[in-house]
Simulated assay, not measured.
Amino acid sequence: TIGNDVSARSLQFRGSQWILGKSLDNFAPIGPTIVSPDDFDFDNATITTTVNGEIRQQAKLQQMMFKPDAIIEFVSQYITLQEGDIIFTGTPSGVVLGKNESKYGWLKSGDTVSISISGIGTLVNQFK
């Protein structure tokens, strides 16, 4: 499926831990559907993130630093995974953090973020 790894940067940098900036109510939406690995072409899939229709991130899933199998293997050494658990696997380059903020700017109320992965669909979230 697709997950939107939302971050509230104003809260994220209040301390040394990032959990507050990623754990508020309604953060980490997922969807629009779940596909089986047997029905998904990981090797040829592309992820695209747009903000108000402007492409901000785009990459082949093959470019991931750590592939899903390796992530699951690592995490399962420390955490007992249960059916239905969700692991966010990271994000392609293009997040505003570390970029020229005057060019992109942080998300604001009314912005629409769409994340598409070929073979899965598109997750659309409007920020308030």
Rank of each mutant, 00 (worst) to 15 (best):
Q58N: 10
A8F: 11
T48L: 00
D43Q: 12
K67G: 05
Q126K: 15
I115P: 00
T91S: 13
G110K: 09
E54A: 11
Y104E: 09
P29F: 09
F74L: 13
G15R: 07
K67M: 10
Y78W: 11
T122R: 05
I34T: 14
I55P: 00
S10R: 14
G105P: 05
Q62T: 13
T48W: 00
T112C: 03
I19Q: 15
A8I: 15
R9L: 11
I72D: 01
F127A: 11
N125I: 09
S36D: 12
S10G: 15
T122Q: 05
F27I: 07
L81I: 06
D41I: 05
F13I: 13
F40P: 04
K108G: 05
S7M: 11
Q63W: 06
T46Q: 06
T80W: 00
G3A: 13
T1Q: 13
V124L: 08
V35F: 09
A8D: 15
I47V: 13
V96L: 11
G121F: 05
F127T: 11
I86D: 02
R56E: 02
I47R: 00
Q77C: 12
T33V: 15
T50R: 12
T49G: 03
T80V: 08
I120Q: 06
G119N: 10
S109W: 01
V6E: 09
L61K: 02
S102E: 15
N125S: 14
N100L: 04
W18Q: 12
A8M: 14
N26L: 09
T48Q: 01
L20N: 05
I55R: 03
D111P: 04
I115R: 00
S7E: 06
Q62I: 11
Q62G: 07
L11S: 08
